[in-house]
């Protein structure tokens, strides 16, 4: 891990990886959306609206996954002081916030025809909304200091504290009796979903993950370049 904490080595590797991840993400989205929209059966209860699942569920997974990544990056920044870990955490926050927003919006669009309401205050929905607030809080805090180093440290601590919310979201459908349905996939026995629906769902999930990696690389590279420009300008003016 520490070997890749070197910004120059990271940039070199990232530049090589980026075309692959972004094109594979595009392929996954293309096939996933095709199978999801045109080539998978409608649900016997939910009808055509079930197709919202192919965006909603992967986005929800990614909102939690991105937060976990952000917390891990924050922890490694606090422990080993890798500036690259800090840059990763800073870049992950707006991406995760966007995934969470997509989750909430598609959820509302799905809830309206199925539950008859855009929003209910049940445990799953509320805890995801709190996750969204945590992302926003991180983004505000990280930029609230004149000394960026202080902002990184404070925001890293906040990311770690906010991590308590992740298991609460994950298990909220089991702990409380909610309107939101429980998990169908991550169960010990076989998943409670047919292969014709599972295939596009997993394709979309893979696409979302590759998309996250691509965007993350672009954002991190941008921040690294910004830092270099700043350093060069300082050298010039000094």
């Amino acid at each position: 891990m520490h070997k890749f904490a070197n910004p120059a080595r990271f940039t070199k590797l990232a530049t090589k990886v980026l075309p692959w991840t972004s094109s594979f993400a595009a392929v996954c989205f293309l096939f996933g959306l095709y199978f999801g929209i045109f080539d998978s059966p409608a649900d016997y209860q939910q009808g055509e609206t079930v197709r919202i699942m192919y965006v909603h569920v992967p986005a929800a997974w990614m909102s939690l996954f991105t937060y976990s990544l952000m917390a891990a990056a924050s922890a490694s920044f606090l422990i080993w002081k890798h500036s690259l870990a800090d840059i990763a955490a800073r870049s992950l926050a707006p991406i995760g916030a966007a995934f969470t927003a997509v989750t909430l919006i598609t959820g509302a669009l799905w809830g309206q025809p199925m539950w008859g309401t855009w929003w209910v205050w049940d445990a799953r929905l509320t805890s995801v909304l709190v996750l969204f607030f945590l992302y926003l809080g991180y983004m505000v805090l990280v930029n609230a200091f004149d000394d960026p180093e202080k902002g990184s440290k404070a925001a890293a601590v906040l990311a770690l504290i906010g991590f308590v919310n992740v298991p609460i979201i994950k298990f909220s459908v089991d702990w409380w009796n909610t309107l939101h349905q429980p998990a169908s996939l991550s169960r010990l026995d076989a998943p409670a979903i047919d292969i014709s629906m599972l295939a596009p769902l997993l394709l979309m999930a893979l696409g979302f993950k590759l998309f996250l990696i691509s965007i993350l690389i672009v954002k991190m590279r941008t921040i690294l370049i910004e830092k270099r420009i700043q350093a060069k300008q300082l050298l010039k003016s000094g």
């Binding site: 805090l141 609230a144 200091f145 004149d146 000394d147 202080k150 902002g151 404070a154 601590v157 906040l158």
Partner: peptide, 8 residues
């Protein structure tokens, strides 16, 4: 956390 920040 907010010690020393703007808008604390």
């Amino acid at each position: 956390l907010v010690l020393g920040s703007r808008l604390s």
